[in-house]
């Protein structure tokens, strides 16, 4: 318990690849020296298209409590429409970070005492050559820019390792291009 754990909750839709995104960040975090990494998808009855969430905890030490996180430090939202269906900031710590795939600027979102970061991942990823709607690698670039937790070079490698044989370069390009275009708002 006497340890610093960074807790990140990922919101997406079933089939959108939020789990894969969290897994890529988990791998990159481990390579960056976070020896404690735990990624836990929600358990139960996922359906394609329905809102799903995945929790990722990273720490410099081994993590022993595998319970689902209730008070994240940051949340990542792969589809801005989920905000209308799910309270994505539930339990989010004051001053926490909300990273959203959206065409809007951060100021558009009214989350009290939170930092909002946005990027039009859907558009950027399509420009990188990915089929339209594939956003789970692009959003990693927004996460990297807004959180500053893990370097883009390590994340690029983690993305390409995950997508060996499935457009590794296009996926990592989507992340790097999103990194450049992510807007981070004030508190």
């Amino acid at each position: 318990m006497n340890q610093d754990i960074i807790k990140i909750r990922w919101h997406g839709r079933g089939g959108q690849g939020a789990i894969t995104a969290a897994k890529i960040v988990a791998n990159a975090a481990f390579v960056s020296g976070f020896s404690g990494v735990v990624m836990a998808p929600t358990f139960g009855t996922e359906r394609r298209g329905a809102p799903v969430l995945t929790s990722l905890q990273i720490s410099r030490q081994k993590i022993y409590d595998l319970s689902p996180i209730t008070q994240p430090d940051m949340v990542v939202v792969l589809d801005h429409l989920i905000i209308e269906e799910v309270d994505v900031t539930a339990g989010l710590k004051s001053g926490g970070l909300v990273i959203i795939n959206s065409t809007e600027k951060p100021e558009f979102f009214d989350f009290k005492n939170m930092t909002v970061a946005t990027a039009d991942v859907t558009h950027i990823a399509a420009n990188a050559g990915l089929p339209r709607g594939i956003v789970n690698t692009g959003i990693i670039g927004a996460f990297a820019k807004a959180s500053g937790l893990i370097g883009m070079d390590i994340l690029t490698r983690a993305i390409e390792d995950e997508f060996t044989g499935k457009h590794p370069e296009k996926n990592s390009l989507a992340a790097r291009a999103t990194y450049e275009k992510t807007l981070v708002g004030g508190k």
Partner: peptide
């Protein structure tokens, strides 16, 4: 089940 089977860790 789930707690270990479906959770990812190094």
């Amino acid at each position: 089940g789930y707690i270990l089977s479906h959770t990812y860790m190094p």
